[in-house]
């Protein structure tokens, strides 16, 4: 299981970074999503991998338990990354609709040109 989780994190991260380097807004957003999946799985693993054990301590008998804190952290991370992805989609959509170009690089402007920004 360790090998599976570790390679999943590695492959997701590699794919995410590759997509971000494509510098077009849609692949970049997909890449960011993959990266957040990678980090979520990674956070799970930070509490040691354990399957079939409840996240509850039992003071009456010795039982296997899993660390509940990483689960709470992952939940927070998922909510935040979900919100952030929504925001970046909206901003990228705004950029695309107003410039008709989905490249994430800024082009140089001629000196003295107009515009609002």
């Amino acid at each position: 299981m360790e090998l599976l989780v570790a390679s999943a994190v590695g492959i997701l991260t590699a794919a995410g970074i590759y997509l971000i380097l494509r510098r077009r807004s849609f692949p970049v957003i997909l890449g960011l999503s993959l990266l957040t999946y990678a980090v979520n799985v990674f956070l799970f693993a930070s509490g040691r991998l354990m399957s079939g054990a409840p996240p509850i301590l039992n003071k009456y008998e010795e039982v296997l338990y899993t660390d509940p804190l990483p689960q709470a952290l992952v939940l927070t991370a998922i909510v935040i990354s979900f919100g952030m992805t929504a925001v970046v989609v909206m901003i990228a959509l705004g950029a695309y609709l107003s410039s008709r170009d989905d490249r994430t690089a800024l082009n140089a402007e001629p000196e003295g040109s107009g515009g609002d920004a």
Partner: peptide, 17 residues
């Protein structure tokens, strides 16, 4: 808003994410 502001905004958001 504004085109360049949105484009710079995408960069800013992606970098910070």
């Amino acid at each position: 808003g504004g085109t360049r502001r949105f484009q710079a905004g995408v960069q800013y958001v992606v970098f910070n994410l």
